[in-house]
Amino acid sequence: MWSIICARIKIILSNSCVLTLFIFSVPKAQAKQSYEDIYQTQSGWHLGMATGYGKIDNPIHQGNDIPLVLIPKIEFYWGDFALNNSQLIYTPWQNDSTTFSFLTRVNEDGLYFIDDLLSASAGAAFLQRPLMSDGGPNQQGNKTAPALMRGEIERIDDRKISVLAGMEVNHDWNDWRISAAWYREVTNYHHGDEAFFSIAKAWRGQSHLWLTSLEWQYQSEELLQYYYGTRLADWIAGFSRFRPNSALNTSIKISYRYDISSHWDFIAEARIQRLDSMLNASPLLQQQHLFSFFTGFAWSF
């Protein structure tokens, strides 16, 4: 199951090569089956690798866009249990169209704060973006919005990568899938929550598969305060004060796969995400609209 643009994992090879990975997928063998089967999983091991080029926008101040070169596929399905790259999944109940699962996931926000991203791809050209506005007219009156003070991002307090656990419900109907999920942080860093609701549609040809999806992401105040709010160490580093409320982010995703042979595919995916406008006031963030993509060739076994 090739996964692109849901979560990212950092791997170190030969002590220096950092590979940034995406997770989202559809089983290859079932792309040739009916729409009812297109989202379903298979049993046993599923291994593979994709190579190509892509990048993930990093919204953090002074952050570099993250290049993508290799994407692994490591999956194992055994009865009601599954390992899907970074996810552990237990599905105690399912029927022909609906599944209910308990699962874990890595929080994506923490991955934006990983150090030494420049080692991810030697000589890669990183796209530079202007900072958010440092103040301007308030749309609700004649007041002036407070200036966003930004210092050295390397001096802020550490933000750790958190793990969340929760539950998910998927319902499939013909070429449609509706999903809802809720997660609570279990690594004792921020005790925050995330929730997702998405609608996806598939179009299938003899050798072609298109997937489009629309997703809404809720993030609690506790989670956002840990990653994008500021505290004493951040104020000392030169960043202005900010305490967020809960947020609702939206994203649109398009995926494509062309079956070259039983083991090879051409794959491509792009996602545009809009962060809640409330986060514009965070001095740690420098953009509201994030773009991610990957295109390349995938081998599966």
Rank of each mutant, 00 (worst) to 15 (best):
S3V: 07
I5G: 03
I11T: 14
S14L: 05
N15K: 11
C17Y: 03
V18L: 09
T20W: 14
T20V: 07
F22K: 05
F24L: 07
Q30C: 03
Q30E: 11
Y35E: 12
D37I: 01
I38L: 09
Q40D: 09
T41C: 04
Q42G: 14
S43V: 05
S43G: 10
G44L: 11
Y53W: 13
G54S: 11
I60C: 00
N64V: 10
L70P: 07
P72D: 11
K73D: 14
K73E: 15
I74N: 10
E75R: 11
Y77H: 15
L83P: 07
Q87H: 13
Q87D: 14
T91F: 02
T91G: 03
P92W: 02
T99S: 15
T99D: 12
F100P: 02
F100E: 02
S101E: 11
T104S: 14
T104L: 04
D109G: 06
I114M: 04
D115A: 02
S119I: 04
S119M: 07
A120G: 13
A122M: 09
A125F: 12
L131G: 02
L131A: 07
S133H: 02
G141M: 08
A145F: 12
A147G: 05
E152A: 01
D157R: 01
S162C: 01
A165R: 02
E168K: 15
E168N: 15
N170W: 09
H171I: 10
D172V: 13
W173P: 03
N174Q: 14
I178R: 07
A180M: 14
N188P: 00
N188M: 00
Y189K: 00
H190Q: 01
A195E: 05
A195N: 08
A195T: 06
S198W: 07
A200N: 09
K201R: 14
Q206P: 02
Q206L: 05
S213I: 07
Y218A: 10
S220V: 03
E221Q: 13
L224S: 06
L224Y: 04
G229P: 08
T230H: 03
A233D: 00
F239N: 00
F242M: 09
R243A: 13
A247K: 01
L248K: 06
I252R: 05
K253F: 10
I254L: 15
S255N: 13
Y256D: 07
R257N: 05
D259V: 01
S261Y: 02
S262H: 06
W264L: 14
D265Q: 14
A268F: 12
A268S: 14
A270N: 11
Q273N: 09
Q273K: 15
L275G: 06
L275I: 09
A281W: 01
S282K: 01
S282Q: 02
Q286Y: 00
L290G: 02
F293H: 13
T295H: 11
T295Y: 12
G296A: 09
G296Y: 08
F297S: 10
F301A: 08
